[in-house]
Amino acid sequence: MIAFIVTTIICFITYLLLTTGSGTMGLWSMEEFLFGFILSLIVGFVTGRIFVKEDFRMLNPVRWLTFIAYAIGPFFIGLAKANIDVAYRVITGKINPGIVKISPDLKTDLGITMLANSITLTPGTLSVDIDEDKNDLYIHWINVNEEALKGGSVDCKYICGNFDKWVRRIAE
């Protein structure tokens, strides 16, 4: 039931955002309200149990604020660094690639998705595959650090910096 309500509300907000400026009641018209509400009810009924899986910790607003802080602060800086790094490699052509395995030790699906997307968009790394039993990630690394390979398995800090701590704070 909570899953149905949450999905319906998110659908309705998205619909209202996409139809701003259509009428005179505030920014919307009566038809848009009605049609959007009916559509959100149907979508919430059909996809509610897929969208929210028995686990309501993402309803906590503190996690949303942490996510916004993460997206604006460390994530954007990482993205900028990544692009300067790629620019350097495009111009000079110096690469030293390899595929390594890391174990970030995250448990939820949302957390591992967020970490994989962050890794793909940040310096010199691209997530290739996932081991679904242990949640290990396989990373294509454009400039392999020889020190990181010595211990057998690669430490998280070479690949994703402190992103895993942020993701743990948001999604676990």
């Binding site: 993205l79 900028a80 990544a82 692009n83 790629v86 620019a87 490699r89 495009v90 052509g93 690469i95 690639p97 793909t120 968009l121 010199g124 691209l126 290739v128 294509h140 454009i142």
Partner: peptide
């Protein structure tokens, strides 16, 4: 410029997103 699929993905994903 890049030699294989993975490095091309680096260029094609990060740079276009940014």
């Amino acid at each position: 410029r890049f030699p294989d699929v993975y490095t091309r993905l680096h260029a094609g994903t990060k740079c276009t997103t940014f």
